[in-house]
């Protein structure tokens, strides 16, 4: 474990806590894409299949459980909770995310480290995570203005993978046999997707203005 990875995991956890705060404090999920949340639940369920088979560390197992439970809880809340469900931007959140799931699964069948059930699902979860934010970014573009908590949520979510890239660079130079190409390249694509959001987020922060994304 290195500082970049720990910072990345904590940033990831913060993004989830910010989202939970927004939903529970405001009893609203306006501006949040249910499709992105569903994709994240699939990402964690597909990636942590080894939760019961490979024990890495208490930290690793606890964080896996937290990520799985929180992502499922957010989806459940946005689908079932009466008050929250009413505020869901159903007509704006129309990205066909099933195509993303299908494309990533096919790609994982083609490109993986080893052709085993667990490895294919791991690669699938890595590819899916890279594109999971797309429905959310599309929703933000359509709704134009971004409320603070949603903006912070997307910012931390993007920042965590950028920290992971630093972690991979660090591990590449410090560990003899470290090669995590699938995660590295996918992580670069993932962070690049946030690039324009980061740009407008920084501008709004610098000008102390409200975050408005160009339609």
């Amino acid at each position: 474990m290195n500082a970049f990875r720990l910072a990345g995991d904590i940033t990831h956890l913060i993004s989830i806590l910010v989202l939970l705060l927004k939903i529970y404090a405001t009893k609203s999920c306006s501006g949040i894409s249910l499709k992105t949340q569903e994709l994240y639940a699939v990402v964690f369920l597909a990636r942590y299949l080894d939760l019961f088979t490979d024990f890495i560390s208490v930290y690793n197992s606890v964080m896996k459980v937290v990520f799985i439970l929180s992502s499922v809880a957010i989806v459940w809340c946005m689908r079932r909770h009466r008050a929250v469900k009413r505020s869901y931007d159903k007509e704006l959140d129309t990205f066909r995310h099933y195509y993303l799931v299908g494309a990533c699964f096919v790609f994982a069948l083609l490109v993986h480290e080893k052709f085993t059930f667990q490895e294919v699902f791991w690669a699938f979860s890595i590819y899916l995570e890279a594109v999971a934010i797309i429905p959310q970014l599309v929703l933000l573009q359509r709704s134009g203005n971004v409320d603070n908590l949603t903006g912070q949520y997307v910012f931390f979510l993007g920042a965590y993978r950028a920290l992971y890239i630093l972690n991979w660079i660090y591990r590449y130079f410090t560990e003899a046999k470290f090669s995590r190409w699938i995660a590295c390249i996918s992580g670069l694509v993932q962070t690049a997707l946030y690039a324009d959001f980061f740009y407008y987020y920084f501008l709004s922060w610098k000008n102390n203005a409200k975050l408005n994304l160009p339609a």
Partner: peptide, 10 residues
């Protein structure tokens, strides 16, 4: 086979 680098990352 290359000994499996355990998926120690989240």
């Amino acid at each position: 086979a290359k000994d499996e680098v355990a998926k120690d990352e989240l």
